[in-house]
Amino acid sequence: MLYTLIGGVAHHALHLTDAFWLTAAARWEESDPLERSRILLLSEKGDAPAMITRLRRFGALPRSVAAREAATLLVQRWHPQLLVISPWSSAMGAWCKDLCSRAEGMNLPILAIGPGENESMAMMALDGGADAYLTQPVSDTLLLAQISALLKRNNHWEQVVAGQMEILQVNPRTHRVWVRGQEIRLSRRLFRLLHYLALHPDQTFSARHIASLLS
């Protein structure tokens, strides 16, 4: 199955326009990762206004919600590039795990901000699906650095729709794949590999590189 998919991607990728991908890559690499990035802030304790002001000052396009249900809907419809949970609480763990298990939340980086009296809160956040944890109060310098790192790690190619519907299309936002108009279902790892290969036609990769994509 894997070799069939890879072979199909290699064949159909020849029909993609190399210039389009080179232009897109250049545009993304030259830009500030925070510039106009969609950042969703979940704040159940009314801390949103101050954080929203800080994010806008960084050049981002933030939106805030006070309820987990509203955050889930925005992840599905608005497709944020980063989720910030502030403040983090132990009640967030189950919801965060559920969000990360869904197609729309699988590749969404999550930054948790919470109290730093002990390590247990940070461990709960990281175990619950957060990619990073910052303790309050957090300086603008550290907040900016951490957000930038998460946005860069969430590579821009993961947000780009690959291919053409009549031949092959891989849509990372909906986690759906079509081959000659017929939808196929893949595991998260196979989807990620197929998507990456479709965006990099006529290239070969080492076993270590492929392993890093599947990790």
Rank of each mutant, 00 (worst) to 15 (best):
R77W: 12
I39S: 02
L83G: 00
A48S: 08
V75M: 11
D47T: 13
S37N: 02
S89R: 06
I52S: 04
S37E: 04
Q76V: 11
D47F: 14
A48M: 06
G46P: 02
R57Q: 10
R54A: 15
L83K: 00
E35Q: 12
A71P: 03
S90F: 15
R57E: 12
R68L: 09
L40M: 07
W78K: 03
M51Y: 09
A66K: 01
W28E: 13
L55H: 00
L40D: 01
D32M: 10
M51A: 12
I85Y: 01
L74V: 04
M92F: 11
E30F: 08
H79S: 13
S90P: 08
L74Y: 02
W28Y: 12
L40V: 05
A70Y: 02
L83E: 01
R27G: 11
S64I: 08
D47Y: 10
Q76K: 05
P33F: 09
I85K: 00
A66S: 11
D47V: 13
A50L: 14
W78D: 09
V84S: 04
V75I: 15
R36C: 12
A71D: 06
R27C: 13
R38Q: 08
P33C: 13
V65A: 06
E69I: 10
L73P: 03
R68C: 10
G93F: 10
T72F: 13
L42N: 00
P33W: 06
R57H: 09
Q81A: 12
E69T: 07
T72E: 13
Q81V: 07
R77N: 14
V75T: 04
P33Q: 06
P49S: 11
T53H: 09
G46Y: 05
P33N: 08
E69N: 03
A94F: 08
A70P: 02
R36P: 06
R36N: 15
A50N: 03
T72H: 04
